[in-house]
Amino acid sequence: MNKKKRLLATTEDKLVLVLYVSGMSPKSMEAIENINRICADQLENSFELEIIDLYKHPELAAEQQIVFSPSLVKRFPLPKKTLVGTFADSEKVIKGLGILFK
């Protein structure tokens, strides 16, 4: 955990994402699957993705202001952005994250 948390300070180019899910619910599984796919397809290596199960770390829900599940938080680059849902529409996700393609 702590090791992962330190990843906050990464290089400028990298997108820092944290996905909060609640256990092994169908929505959680779907979200994880979709995010992995989007990242692999579109972001190649320019991202850091951390997946946190709120059941295992309930204190993080309050610390990180998580209400909805699943929630994908883009920590870096700013502005901070939160996407909620199962991320089925990859275009919407890309747009929501504010990623511009060259």
């Binding site: 909060y20 609640s22 619910s25 929505k27 709120l54 059941y55 309930p58 204190e59 829900a61 309050a62 202001q65 998580i66 209400v67 909805f68 599940s69 699943p70 929630s71 502005p79 901070k80 952005k81 939160t82 996407l83 909620v84 849902g85 199962t86 991320f87 089925a88 529409d89 919407k92 996700v93 929501g96």
Partner: peptide, 28 residues
């Protein structure tokens, strides 16, 4: 527990639930 949601920072992309709130509440 002060729940602060910045609506401008949030975007909906499919189905979700309030499990995050449940977990927070349960923990508290």
């Amino acid at each position: 527990d002060h729940i602060h949601i910045e609506k401008t920072e949030i975007q909906e992309t499919g189905e979700y639930d309030l499990e995050g709130l449940f977990i927070r509440l349960n923990y508290a």
